[in-house]
Design a protein around this nucleic acid. Structure first.
Lengths: 231, 231
DNA sequence: TCAAAAGTGTTCGCTATACACCCATGG
DNA sequence: CCATGGGTGTATAGCGAACACTTTTGA
């Protein structure tokens, strides 16, 4: 047994993991990807995807690795959230977790097979999570809500092309409020960050709506000129 | 030698530290407290105060301990900033650092003796720092600038009682802009977060200015009613 | 032709900004 | 009495909230 413990230090070292809150938008609700734990502790309990930090990777690389494993995505919007370090948060040993959150397009996510232990949950339907993952998720939701006022991150959750209506539903879902359809439309158009797509979409309702794409170049240009996104 | 390495793990563990960016305001400029390193690596180089995480304390407790050691303060405004984890950021071994920033009133700080290795630096006068501490400091300044728009944290840097003029100088110093004196005055008063102090201050200029205090209770009250501070 | 959804216009009130003005104080 | 800085008033522009109206399409 002891012979397995082959890493030695003069002072005690905590174990370090990253956990990742992966948000997706299904057209009407914000969802989070959870993993059913196959091992103790908290066996059978839902938890955020995560894993131990390797010695040759940064925390963001570790989180990106987790994302890839669970969604198949190589790239996505990803930000560090907070580091959770309360002693006892993991019953096994001292573990600190560097938490990240990610925004992904559900259409681009590799659907895990049916037997997969990964599953999307609407925010209104989150079960009790393992460890302190409820706290992590709560903080991630709060961060998402705050960020969307000042950063164009909503577009990371929508398809490349989208209607203003879809965008509004997304904002309303994240912020938990309702906007006047017409004012929302004008405000978004007026921001000057959307490019209208030529091709008229397939009619999915009475009147076909214009399709737009987020204009990254325009956003960076405005931002460099001191423009501050505010919504 | 090897007998000193008495902590054994099955997998490699990184060392974990906290580093702390301590901001103070001297009446005209934002300052940061730096420590001259007495030991290698980076011996003689200026660095952020910091230290290794103990196994029985959370990261915030560790940062608070650092703050106490360097300033004598038991309490101060303190927030987690970011966790820095690039492999190789410490030449000795794998070390990840959970960075915090703190806002303190210079008047309350225990002045270290003259022989002290701690010193305040104006932001315009920061030397090259050890490790990746320049990156940490840059991020902390950026965070401070962003936060002051939406949180009443400026007051943490001023004395209990202050004039609107002092407050304006603080805001201008942090944001690097100039405000119209009269509009700033009215805006601050109109926010309803300041309580006027009865006692007229000693004249320090032509006309004596009113003294104000930040009204925490009023702020919390407004915040709970959905009020959003914006500056 | 009618209902439902998309796109456009108009009004009103608030607030940020740019100033002018008066008051108090120390030299 | 005058220069300096503190406190108050006022006008204008811009933007967001509220809501009326027109247009397009499917049934």
């Amino acid at each position: 047994m002891t012979s397995e413990l082959k890493y030695h230090y003069k002072y005690p070292h905590p174990a370090v993991t990253t956990d990742c809150v992966i948000f997706g938008f299904d057209g009407s609700d914000i969802n989070v990807l959870l993993i059913k734990r196959g091992l103790d502790p908290f066996k059978g309990c839902w938890a955020l995807p995560g894993g131990f930090l390797r010695m040759d990777e940064s925390a963001s690389e570790c989180a990106k690795r987790e994302l890839k494993e669970e969604t198949g995505l190589d790239t996505a919007f990803m930000r560090q959230l907070h580091t959770f370090s309360t002693p006892g948060r993991d019953p096994r040993e001292r573990v600190i977790s560097i938490a990240y959150y990610a925004l992904v397009r559900l259409s681009e996510v590799c659907g895990g097979d049916d037997a997969s232990d990964a599953q999307w949950f609407a925010l209104s339907d989150i079960p009790n999570l393992a460890f302190d993952h409820n706290d992590i998720l709560t903080m991630a939701i709060d961060r998402l809500r705050r960020s969307i006022h000042f950063e164009p991150i909503g577009f990371e959750l929508l398809p490349q092309s989208f209607t203003i209506k879809q965008l509004q539903t997304l904002y309303e879902s994240i912020l938990g409020v309702k906007f006047d359809r017409r004012n929302f439309y004008k405000k978004m158009i007026h921001l000057g960050l959307l490019t209208q797509v030529e091709q008229p979409p397939k009619p999915y309702s009475r009147k076909v709506a214009y399709l737009f794409q987020f204009n990254h170049d325009r956003y960076n240009e405005l931002k460099n000129n001191g423009f501050k996104l505010e919504f």
